[in-house]
Design a protein around this nucleic acid. Sequence first.
DNA 1: CGGGAACTTGATCTCGGTCAATATTGGTGG
DNA 2: CCACCAATATTGACCGAGATCAAGTTCCCG
Lengths: 222, 222
Amino acid sequence: MDRERLAQLLALGGPRKWRKREILFAAGTPMGSFFKITRGVVAVSRTLEDGRRQIVAIRVPGDCVGYLEEGGLYAFEGEALTDVEACGFDRRKFDAFAAAHPDLAAATAEALATALKQTGQAMLVLGQLRSTERVAHFLAEIDTLYRVRRVSSQPLSLHMTRGDIADYLGLTIETVSRTIGKLKRRGIIQVAGTDEIVVLDRDRLLDMGKTRCDSKDAGSAF
Amino acid sequence: MDRERLAQLLALGGPRKWRKREILFAAGTPMGSFFKITRGVVAVSRTLEDGRRQIVAIRVPGDCVGYLEEGGLYAFEGEALTDVEACGFDRRKFDAFAAAHPDLAAATAEALATALKQTGQAMLVLGQLRSTERVAHFLAEIDTLYRVRRVSSQPLSLHMTRGDIADYLGLTIETVSRTIGKLKRRGIIQVAGTDEIVVLDRDRLLDMGKTRCDSKDAGSAF
DNA sequence: CGGGAACTTGATCTCGGTCAATATTGGTGG
DNA sequence: CCACCAATATTGACCGAGATCAAGTTCCCG
């Protein structure tokens, strides 16, 4: 995408900030803007009336969140896992702009297609893997994600509580804790404090997580 | 989309047919075309080396399948659950055509966004619902899907074996069978033969399936 | 009809959930 | 900088939903 258009596009968006654990957008709330993350990590989730919550994706700088709507309302919730900075785009203006710029529409489709592949993979994890496999897969996934997208590296900060991890993997806090303990005892990872992790044996972690996760792709292109 | 463009577009596609249980496209195979289903039902899935399979979506006439790629290879597998007719579109030609027709690109993005919302919902089902809730949700989902998209109605044909349902819900054949039995005994559904189902108490089914499933939307717009 | 695949049903086992104490930890104010 | 404390994490004992194993039974397709 050329410089000028990019400038025009950015003019549509206003920079905003949130603090850790603040909500960027709540499910069922009227949609205004979606957001392109420039700093920090956000969890996209959906919750049942009885409180059961499923985190559907972890998003990092370069990704967009809050794009999916359901009758003019946000379809999911977005919560800041760290302090977050993001650029908000009015959805209507963006759509109009995209209609006039085919390459932008293509980039949007591309980003959505990537997200869809990821969710397919996530369904495999939730539906088929046992708890140890899920946790191993999660750690490998976060490790590459954060490294590739420069969120953090070697002493890897998860930025997620055990509860968040549990809600992402469809397990309980206790099971996540026990499993991390087991991986630590087996010398596959090292844990400092409560969310600093060092991956000691990446190969074994990948094997345990079954589904080799592809490292290469970047965030949504627009 | 206007008539003329539609004609052009259709000229890109060749009609094809498959018989029940044939593979439309295999994961990891070089991608040629994607398909817009015109008749029948297809299951989109992904399988681990050890044979565990997760069905990621059930697709019906109006939907597209085989669109997602991973380095030039199909990212998922598509299997015909019934005899299927579909229109194949060469992906490269389609992309070129879409680049020249903004409304088509927008329609593509729209379809992908809808699919993404559905998968988010599916993650909630796999990660948070108990077996009875999952089966109830599944039956309600299929009921509305097939009715809205005119696959079949009242004596509802699932077109899926217990094994398929299990692979979709992350359960085992036995659990699916037992759960369907329980719903039958409770008078919520009626079962004829092995895949003909009549929903007797739709409200109760929806309640059990927790996550009220939205009926309205149609297939991918192109 | 006949036979093989798909389904149901029962008995048992196991993984992960639940409940219940501790034990860390990291954030806060003194 | 340290001490305190509420939040988070760990650990243990026990339980139960759903998986596994193993027969039967039904169905449906040729």
